[in-house]
């Protein structure tokens, strides 16, 4: 139960897609995303529908890239931040692929990749699985915070829910159609819902950092590996605040990531150009950055081994007002580059 799950037949991410809204497109990674919508509306008239439309479009993009139709996908894991994950069920869920809705807050991308890998490893009758996660700033603000046009100042530790989505198509790497160069998920370690003690809804980074530290420390102590075995240790959306807290927590426990740590929430925005405070967040943040930045680097073999931890703050506005603290979660997957060119 508390073991690292290793896949004897690793799971290949054979196709991927990413999409973002305006602020994210204007950020430092803007040119890397597959498509964007400068109006953030993705052709819909309400923000909730915009996210549905984003969710559908990003999966369709991945399918088109793989040259496949939805009928070839056996199982879909998808999630977002809206109630009952409607952006997923009414978005990519409409393609008719058997669907499992996921709610792991901003960690949903990692949770989905982990569960899809487990499903493919456990059930030989499944050949292809898809993972889609999205978030939309306007839909999230409406659901969790204040009206869009409300004039308020955000706390310096607050993070910015990204308008972004990522889609991934997965199969066992032994399948004949699996491209040898595709990055692989070779192992995973589920996160634990860890009480951070943080009761400030505007400091999600602090709420998630202990969970991320917990998973990282468990992984290294269970495997005997060290950070130097990885080219990058990527967290989902701890932001500037959470990243600093993570490295302090790890140092307390005798672990130094030695400059290998990157955070998708920090990478997504340029703090000098966009006043996003501590960085980006949301289900789409880590999904889009993984899809647009780290997977291509693994495909090009600029990176060989990457530890990817999506991080989630499992926050309910009602429970927060009732004085409960926020639990964080950080599922981990180990990514390796594919096996072409005779290496490895």
């Amino acid at each position: 139960m508390r073991k690292v799950i290793r896949f004897s037949d690793p799971v290949s991410i054979y196709a991927r897609a990413s999409a973002v809204g305006k602020t994210e497109y204007d950020g430092p990674l803007g040119a890397l995303f597959d498509f964007h919508d400068g109006t953030d509306r993705f052709g819909a008239d309400t923000w909730e529908k915009s996210e549905e439309s984003l969710s559908l479009a990003v999966l369709n993009f991945a399918l088109a890239r793989a040259g496949e139709s939805q009928d070839e996908i056996d199982l879909l894991f998808a999630g977002d931040l809206q109630n009952q994950c409607v952006a997923s069920s009414s978005g990519c869920g409409t393609l008719g692929i058997p669907y499992c809705g996921l709610y792991g807050a901003c960690s949903t991308s990692g949770e989905g990749l982990l569960l899809a890998s487990l499903a493919l490893a456990a059930a030989p009758s499944l050949s292809r699985a898809a993972v889609v996660t999205t978030s939309h700033n306007a839909a999230a603000e409406r659901q969790f915070r204040l009206p869009l046009e409300y004039g308020g100042q955000r706390s310096p530790t607050a993070q910015w829910t990204a308008t972004a989505g990522g889609a991934f198509l997965l199969c066992r790497s032994s399948e004949p159609f699996a491209p040898p160069s595709a990055p692989r998920i070779v192992a995973c370690l589920p996160g634990r819902a860890l009480d951070s003690g943080v009761t400030d809804g505007a400091n999600m980074g602090a709420a998630m950092a202990p969970a991320a530290a917990d998973t990282i420390l468990r992984y290294f102590s269970l495997t005997g590996e060290s950070p130097s075995d990885f080219d990058r240790i990527v967290t989902g959306d701890l932001g500037a605040e959470g990243s600093a807290l993570l490295s302090e927590l790890l140092r307390d426990n005798g672990l130094d990531l030695r400059g290998r740590h990157r955070d998708c929430g920090v990478l997504l925005f340029d703090p000098l150009k966009a006043d996003v405070h501590a960085g980006g967040s949301g289900c789409g943040c880590s999904a889009s950055v993984l899809s647009a930045l780290f997977l291509p680097a693994l495909e090009r073999k600029e990176l060989r081994r990457v530890l990817f931890l999506a991080t989630g703050a499992l926050m309910s506005p009602s429970c927060l007002l009732q004085g409960e603290s926020i639990r964080g979660i950080a599922p981990l997957i180990v990514l390796e580059s594919g096996k072409t060119g005779g290496d490895k």
């Binding site: 100042q153 706390s155 310096p156 530790t157 009480d195 951070s196 003690g197 943080v198 400091n203 602090a206 202990p210 530290a213 917990d214 420390l217 468990r218 605040e241 600093a244 807290l245 302090e248 927590l249 307390d252 426990n253």
Partner: peptide
Amino acid sequence: MNFDRRRYLERVKERESGSP
């Protein structure tokens, strides 16, 4: 993991150097 919640919350508070 060696995690002292009270100390952690103090640290979180300390870091919140805060608004300009």
